[in-house]
Amino acid sequence: MNFIFTAVLMLSIAMLAVVSPESALSSMLAGAERTLAVCASLFAIYAVWCGLSRVAEKSGLSAGMAKALMPLTGKIFASQNKNALEYTSMNLACNLLGLGGASTPYAVKAVRAFEEDGNFFAQSLLFVINATSVQIVPATVIALRAGAGSASPSDIFLPSLVCTVFSTAFAVGLFIVWTKLKKFKGRKRFKKSKGQNG
C-alpha cells in the first residue's frame, strides 16, 4: 500500500504541476471532504448494526450461532479463537443474507480478534471472501433496473450469481495455493520475497 500510494500520488501531482497546478490542492481537499461524507454514512451503518450486534452478543445469540458453525469455520480459518470465529460466522451470515452494512462491523471485529493470535491467514481469507462479494441477491442493481423501466429487472440474477460464486471460489482457491507455496518455499526465501511484496 505504501508503494501504490506514493507512486500514484507523486505521478498525479507531477502531472498536475504541468497541466493545472492550481487544482492540486483543491482536489486533495475535495478528497478529504469526501472522507467525512463517507465516514458519516459509515457511522450510520455502524451505529445501527454495532448496536444490534452488541445486544445479540450479550444475549448469547451470536455465540450460539457461532458454536453451530464452529466445526466448519474453525477448520476453514485454521483458528481456535472463539470470539474471532463468532464474528466471522456472523459476518458470513450477514453477507449471505445481503446485509452488506451489517457484515462490515463483524468483519472488522473478526480481523482484530485474529490479530491477537497473529493469524494472518484467517485475516486475509476473510478479506478475500468479503472483497470478492458473496451476495446472493443483487438487490441494489435489481431495484435500479426496475426504476429504469426494464422488462424483467431480475433477469441478471443468474449470471450475477455465477460470476460472484466463480470470483469468490477462484480467489479463495488462489489464495490457499499461494499460502501453501509460501510455506513450501521455506523461511529464508520467504523473508526475501516478503521484502519485495511489502
Partner: peptide, 17 residues
C-alpha cells in the same frame, strides 16, 4: 486511511491519468 485513499483517487482523476 480513507482520507489518504480518497485524496489519492481525486488527484488521480484530476490529473487526467
Amino acid at each position: 486511511c480513507l482520507a489518504a485513499v480518497f485524496m489519492m483517487c481525486e488527484l488521480f482523476e484530476a490529473s487526467g491519468l
